[in-house]
Every structure is written in structure tokens, then in C-alpha cells.
Simulated scan of single mutants.
Amino acid sequence: MSRTVTVLLADDETLLRAGVRAVLTSGPGIEVVAEAADGREAVDLALRHRPDVCLLDIRMPRLDGLGAAAELARVVPGTAVVMLTTFSEDAYIADALGSGAAGFLLKSGDPRELIAGVRAVAEGGACLSPTVARHVLAQLGDGRLTRGAAARARIAGLTGREREVLGLVGAGLSNAEIARRLSLVEGTVKGYVSAILAGLGVRNRVQAAILAHEAGLVPAS
């Protein structure tokens, strides 16, 4: 049996926290170890509990989700951060990419997506909701083709296998899942991912995932 994934949930809306907690604890393997009503409290509780995953609302008092994510990356780097977003908060996503977030999920999304996303980032994967990805790319408007061309140019130096791995990173798969999909050893996949991040000049898997979507590498689900 796989280990239990521990989660810290931070949102200033009590009802939303209750709903997310209910979803996460509806099945085995996930335990919500603490809840916070603002970003500062989230950082303090993360230092105390050292959770595998911290779910952060973007808009919170005292310290917002972006500030909390950046601080968590410094003080508890072993905790993966997932941002809870709404369609009205697209403008924040680019900033959050630079703050060390490992994923983005919609508050109004499919509960199964939330559970799968938390498990994926706990295993070292990226968690980019397909709905969020499609919506963000759509908001690029007329610049999307230009960005797509630029993304394809950036991945031109990758090998065929590296592009295949990048596409699966874009689909939100963890290293273990990619290894099973491609019949590789997990350590080999780790090496590919490290080489991809370095070759593309991106900081984390979510930035790589966005690039994979822009380049059209993500396989159809």
C-alpha cells in the first residue's frame, strides 16, 4: 500500500476549506494535517507539520498565496505547492510560475482532478489542470501562434525521447508514471527531466508543462 500524502490547506473561506477537505479525505491515502486562513499562518503551519503538499488560495489576507508560495519554497523546499485558482485569476499564474508552485487547479474543477493532482505533486510530478491550461492558452489570443512557434523553436534541441518525456510532464504525470508509460527506470526519467529543464532554461516542471502545451506536445487524454 502506498504511503499517506499529508496536505496543508490554506484559504480564507471556511466553507471552501471544508469542501476541499471533504474531497481530499473522501478516499484513502490523503490526510489534511492542518488548515490556515491566511498565507502567514500557512507558512507557520508548514514549518510545524512539514506536509507533502500545501494547497494555497491565491488571494488571502496578511500574506497572499504568491508570497506564501515563494516563502515556502525557501523555508520548506520539501513541500510541494499547488495554487487553487479561478478563471478570473489568470493574470496571477505567470507570477505563480516564478514562485515555485508545482501545480494549478481550479476551485470549481472535478474533485477527481484535485485528488489526482495532489498525489501527482507529492510524487514529484507537475499538476496543471487541463482546463486551466486550455483557458490560459486561450487568453493568449492572437499571440498564441507566435508563442507556439517560439515554444517549438525552444524544444528543437531536445531529442525525440526528451520531447516524449516533456509531453508527459505537460500531461501532469510523475516520474514514476512516466517510467511506467515508457517502460523506463524511474532514475532514467529523472535524468531526462533534469536535462529537459536545463536545456529549456525553465525553473520547474510546471514551467516545462506550460511550454509543452504551447508546443503542442501534450498527448490527448
Rank of each mutant, 00 (worst) to 15 (best):
A138P: 07
L158Y: 03
I196H: 12
M1G: 15
A10P: 07
A101T: 10
D57Q: 03
G141I: 00
T79N: 07
A36I: 06
G199V: 08
G100L: 03
G39F: 03
F87D: 01
E13C: 07
E71C: 06
D38E: 10
T4P: 13
L97S: 03
G199S: 12
L217R: 00
E41P: 09
R134Q: 12
L56V: 05
N175L: 13
A212M: 01
A209R: 03
R62G: 01
A156M: 04
T4W: 02
P130Q: 06
A138G: 08
S108V: 11
G78R: 14
S194D: 15
I93V: 12
V121F: 12
V121G: 03
A91C: 04
G160Q: 09
Q207L: 12
L105D: 04
L158C: 10
V132D: 06
T14F: 13
T86H: 01
S183N: 15
L56C: 05
D12P: 14
A116F: 03
R50F: 10
A171C: 05
V185H: 15
A126P: 13
G148I: 02
L66V: 15
G201I: 07
L173H: 04
S183D: 13
A80K: 13
S183L: 08
V185A: 14
G117Y: 07
D64I: 02
G100C: 09
L211K: 03
A102L: 08
A138W: 05
E113S: 08
R147M: 06
L168C: 09
I210K: 04
L56E: 07
A122H: 08
A37K: 12
I30G: 08
L114C: 11
A37E: 15
A133E: 10
A208D: 12
M60K: 02
R180S: 15
M83D: 08
R181H: 12
V43D: 14
A122R: 14
H49N: 12
G157L: 04
T131M: 05
R48Q: 15
G98F: 04
D64C: 01
R74I: 08
D38P: 14
Q207W: 03
V32W: 00
T131W: 13
A94K: 06
R163E: 15
E89C: 02
E177P: 08
G109W: 06
I196S: 03
V20L: 13
A126T: 14
G160S: 13
T188M: 09
A116R: 14
L16E: 01
P219N: 09
Y192P: 04
L145K: 00
I58F: 11
L145Y: 00
E35K: 01
A18Q: 09
V136H: 03
G125S: 13
A116V: 14
F104A: 01
G172W: 11
D110P: 03
L106I: 07
A69S: 13
A126K: 05
A138S: 13
S108F: 01
G170Y: 06
L128E: 04
L8Y: 10
L166T: 06
G160F: 07
V132C: 00
L45E: 05
R205P: 08
A176C: 09
L47V: 14
G109Q: 09
R152H: 14
G98M: 07
